[in-house]
Design a protein around this nucleic acid. Sequence first.
DNA 1: TGAATTTTGTACTGATCAGGATAATAATCC
DNA 2: GGATTATTATCCTGATCAGTACAAAATTCA
Lengths: 209, 209
Amino acid sequence: MRSGTKIDGTEKRPRGRPRAYEPETALRQAAEAFWKTGYSGTSLDDISAATGMNRPSLRAAFGDKHDIYVKALHDYWARKFEAMHKALASGGTLAETLMKVYDAALSIYFSGDDQVLGCFVVGTAITEAPGDAEIQRIAADGFRKLDGDFEARFKLARTRGELKPDADPKALALLASATMHSLAVRARAGSPRTELRKLAQKAVSVMCG
Amino acid sequence: MRSGTKIDGTEKRPRGRPRAYEPETALRQAAEAFWKTGYSGTSLDDISAATGMNRPSLRAAFGDKHDIYVKALHDYWARKFEAMHKALASGGTLAETLMKVYDAALSIYFSGDDQVLGCFVVGTAITEAPGDAEIQRIAADGFRKLDGDFEARFKLARTRGELKPDADPKALALLASATMHSLAVRARAGSPRTELRKLAQKAVSVMCG
DNA sequence: TGAATTTTGTACTGATCAGGATAATAATCC
DNA sequence: GGATTATTATCCTGATCAGTACAAAATTCA
């Protein structure tokens, strides 16, 4: 949101020269550049071209290259979990819900204009993780959250009688996450979307008994 | 193998100045450099430092940066599948065999001297894949082979009666591969080895009924 | 011992990198 | 309309990048 924008539409613009970009849009465009070529493979000139901002403006708005990437990474997780929670909250059987979650993920993985980019985290953060404690922590936190959300859904399924009483929600959640990781990796390796959807369906059918 | 080395030990050295490096060792050291920081994040100077070879020697021995990486990638897949086939061929129940496969993978993922580097393919090739058709193809070929090897083992298990007759070997193989992908990603994201081994055990227990 | 051969070591090239200094620009405020 | 303020645009910096040219070094062969 532009700092001078008000809800009723009355513009209360700040003092100096107005920005020529929208921060949210620019960050999204910067993320797309990183998504394509990775953190190390993307230069500030690439980001400058992707956003239409020149380098000094980029710096003033978002900080240095690492700052931009970390902001983009947080933004990606937020979008991913928003889509996932929407799918989880939409009702339906366990199998239906899981497929909605995977379909939501595939929509993100295949959202590139020309290329298939897979998962932003798996495709870019994982490479940097061993040498960058902050990126590693953000990636790991997201994976843990994913595990927890899946586990909660499997526990609910067990109390509802959708699973046998002796089913192990934690084990099933790890397999559900593993399926997600596999989709993420394989999308970037070039597997077509229809094939990945079938993969998800087979995984769901095993997990649901 | 040194070109002038003979099996009986008699050295028949080639004409000029002898090499100061062993090609296999140097390629392994170059791979380790890529493994740590990714393809784009690793410079030829880094590789030069890791191998002890200077840049002109690197070029003469392996070609340009991309050539070195592709050779390292092939070499990694070969080592990975060698370890996996050894585990698959060692006998035992389905569950035991699968755990041997995952333990072999974890040994590779945790083989770094100081850092945990996870899977070379997932950690470095996947980032480059969308923009590099050759790397993408090599990665995808390996994943397909992994799927096929798992499927063959599940088919064998079904004929042996280790699985119910209505079990779906293809579906189980995809889950087994997904578990591998998950270990690969999570190792690089910082999960401890004991935790990943437990994850594999839970996955195996679900897959084996 | 000297010619031939192969690798190594040094140094150079033009390009690109991240970052920052400085001036021009475009708006508000008084 | 002039002062103030924030952003944009241009240009400079030193470092690093991949690649290569060329001479020195180390070996075999005759």
